[in-house]
Design a protein around this nucleic acid. Sequence first.
DNA 1: ATATAACAGTTGTAAAGTCAACTGTTATAT
DNA 2: ATATAACAGTTGACTTTACAACTGTTATAT
Lengths: 152, 152
Amino acid sequence: MPFNSVNRFEDAEHEALMGVWWSGVLLRQIARRFFRDQTVAESQFNVLMALRYAERALSQQDLSERLLVDKSNLTGLIDGLVKLGFVRRFREKRDRRFYRLKLTGEGVEFLEKLEPAYLELVHGIMNEFTPEERTRLTEYMVRLQRRMEQWK
Amino acid sequence: MPFNSVNRFEDAEHEALMGVWWSGVLLRQIARRFFRDQTVAESQFNVLMALRYAERALSQQDLSERLLVDKSNLTGLIDGLVKLGFVRRFREKRDRRFYRLKLTGEGVEFLEKLEPAYLELVHGIMNEFTPEERTRLTEYMVRLQRRMEQWK
DNA sequence: ATATAACAGTTGTAAAGTCAACTGTTATAT
DNA sequence: ATATAACAGTTGACTTTACAACTGTTATAT
């Protein structure tokens, strides 16, 4: 899909999409490195954040949809977070098919400790843009995502 | 890193970067599905495209840098492409440490056959944007990538 | 001249992801 | 009422990727 550098393939649409692709690749790389020396991996951090900022207690299925990760992965990911004491699974009485996942106090504490460094990284990258540009970029990304969801 | 939907975490910089992240995830997903029923995997297609549009014969190391993929992966990826008859490795006499990789006629032919469907997909996504927007998006992505490369 | 560095590629290991098939639970349709 | 379908989660096989350690080759430094 990529090939950023030399692009004799003169197609502006393609070039733009490659830009997004490429930015995503770089972002993943940076994230991986950031989390290398952390207690949790990037994928587990994603779970913690999703749980923290969700409007209600989520199931693994919910997480799967929000994080765009297959539900089968979440079993192990959450096992790890439970073992770390950051998350607990609560069986639902009314419907014993699913769990409600909740962050523990330690989980919240952990996120709060990590947040400053994380935000510093994010801001360090994003202050490339003016507030107006940032707004426009966000808008573009929302539209792009909506468009791409039609291919799912 | 993500958590698009509900974002009580009111931080515009973060939101924008998440947009990029998220678009990247969706794009990967779409690409994976596109290549599912194709002869080559997405990662192999990337290799073929890089070889095709390179200004000179590349080594595996070159590819590793251009595709942002660890060189250890390229061994197997290229093995597969060689087996398919799309790529050949040529030992360099002057420096026997590396290969020069070249697309075969079959390799080029294969790409040409795949190109229409590939471009249709790309255009189907990108016609979300006007030409002006597309230009601006491309510009943003270039700047973002340059910025992120400082973290490598 | 020779030891040391650097380089290109390969191998092995582990993490993270997808997918399909399975278990157990609840909804639904006739 | 009961069979069927849908759902949540788990398991196992497989793919993709990164990283570290290795081999073999060339460059560099003293």
